[in-house]
Structure formats: structure tokens, C-alpha cells
Nucleic acid binder design. Structure first.
Lengths: 144, 144
DNA sequence: TATTGTTATACTCTATAACTATA
DNA sequence: TATAGTTATAGAGTATAACAATA
């Protein structure tokens, strides 16, 4: 007789190290690049989803507000994002990506030596399809 | 005409935030547990793969040796691993999981409220299958 | 009072460089 | 000399608690 919980625990046990190690590898590969993975991710989200407040961006990225404050400060200092006080609620600022930020994202996307893009090319089409098919479920897990 | 590189870049762009956010959520959920995700992962690897040296464990976990030194020190202090000097090469120690370490892993696996296990249960069977199918490809990426 | 964001502080994770012990 | 591991040091990432400004 099948134990459903044991099966889920098995899946969790297999998934956890795969996520952790791959994230480590991706971070390490970025060590000598212009911005870190954390900053790149926040910048990409802001670009894709459009201008938003610091709190909204923190929620999107699944970090606490003080963590996002530091990430934004770095992106702002580098000239990749700017902010304007929301006239409707002066506690908030609306963040947006600058042209330099958009250029950086485009460069990252296009770059032939971007590690993850290059290594995805080493996988078989079936393996890439398997990853593509799993992304919505992984995103749903992060949301739940 | 299809640009293969652009497609890979798209996949990378979708995968990266999913990995990063899910890893953040999993780490955050462990905040009040007995050991951190990094230590749990190293302990689980040592248990599954069997006794090995510190250098081997670092390579398995995709971290540099000094990082693993600290992880091992914590696990040893907690009584979850022990080491014995390799008689054939006295520079190395062979690490192994103690009974307390094995008990902890069993407890983690069994625990009904382990976050990841619980939340995998919320996914549909098709979503879980998609994740299970992607794990080997994710592991291959981390290896490549 | 409640909400948004920041500052202050601290801990975990991880790396590189330099060193020690052994081979 | 070369290798395995540790120590020293530093930076990134992240959190909680306390605070300030605004609603």
C-alpha cells in the first residue's frame, strides 16, 4: 500500500538539494559580473512587471522589506533604477528601471557566455522541456 | 526563423527567478528549526552517499572547502557527524553521520509539517510529476 | 492607530588568500 | 613540491526590532 506522505517527502528530499546546489552554482558563476544574482533578479522583476513600490517588489522577490531596501539602494547607486515619490501617498516611492538598467538586462539576456543560458544548451531538448514544464509548478510552490 | 539562443535565454530568464525565490522561501521556512538548510543538505548528502572526506563533501555540495569546514564544524558541535583520521592519509578525516544525525534526518523526512513536503501536497499530481521529471535535468545543470 | 519604508543590528552563507600538516 | 584541510578575513544576503514619516 502506498503512503502518499512518504512519496511527497521523497520528492522534497530530491528537490531540495537540486535547488540549493544549482542556485549556488549560478551565484558563483556571477562572481565577476557587474551585478549579483539578487540584484539582477530584482531589476528583472521591476522591468518585467513595471514600476512598483519597494514593498511590492519585496513581496514579488520573497524577501522582507529591509532586505529589499538594501538591494534597491545598490541598484539606485549604480544608476539602474530611479524612484519618484508617489503623489497619492508620500510614504511610498514608485521604482522604475532606468535606460542603463534596461541596457544591462538586455546585455545579460543576449550575452552568449551567460552561464545558465550556455549550460541549458548542453541539455537535451527533452531535458529542457522537462525544466520548462516544471517552472510554473516551482513558481506556484514559491507562492503558496 | 527561430533563434535557438534567444529561446535558451528565455528559459534561463524564467528559471532563474523561480529557483531563487523558491530557495528563499524554503530557507525562510526553516528559520525556527533545529538546523539550517545548508547544514541539513550536507548532512543528508553524507548520509545518502556514505562516509567521505571534507573535500569530497564540499564538491558534492558545490561549495568551496573553507565553506564546508564551517558547515562541518557546526554539525560536529551539534553531534550530528563525527570524524576519524584516515589511517592511509593523515591529512584527511573521514566524516560520517552519527545516530543522532540519522535520527534528525528521519525526523525531517517524516515530519508532517515540513514545509516543502506539505506544500508539494497542494500541487496537482501533474504539477508534482512535472517537478519530479525536471529534477534530473536540474541536477545535471548543477554538475555541468 | 495603521501602514510604508528605513535604520540599526546581527547572523548565515560563501568566497579568496594565507597557512599548517602530511604526502 | 603538491595536496587536504583549516584559519583569517571580508562581502553578500537576509532577518528581526525599533524608528520615522505619512495616512
Amino acid at each position: 500500500m502506498t503512503d502518499a506522505h512518504a512519496e511527497l517527502a521523497e520528492l522534497a528530499t530530491a528537490l531540495r538539494p537540486a535547488l540549493l546546489r544549482l542556485t549556488r552554482v549560478i551565484r558563483a558563476q556571477r562572481a565577476d559580473m557587474s551585478i549579483t544574482l539578487t540584484k539582477l533578479s530584482a531589476l528583472a522583476t521591476l522591468y518585467q512587471r513595471g514600476p512598483m513600490s519597494a514593498g511590492e517588489l519585496a513581496a514579488q522577490e520573497r524577501v522582507q522589506p529591509p532586505s529589499m531596501t538594501k538591494v534597491i539602494a545598490g541598484l539606485e547607486a549604480s544608476g539602474y533604477v530611479y524612484r519618484e515619490t508617489d503623489p497619492a501617498d508620500r510614504r511610498q516611492s514608485i521604482l522604475a528601471v532606468t535606460q542603463a538598467g534596461a541596457d544591462l538586462l538586455e546585455e545579460e539576456r543576449r550575452s552568449r557566455d551567460a552561464w545558465l543560458t550556455g549550460h541549458l544548451g548542453v541539455l537535451t531538448p527533452a531535458e529542457r522541456n522537462a525544466i520548462a514544464a516544471a517552472i510554473p509548478a516551482l513558481a506556484k510552490l514559491a507562492d503558496s
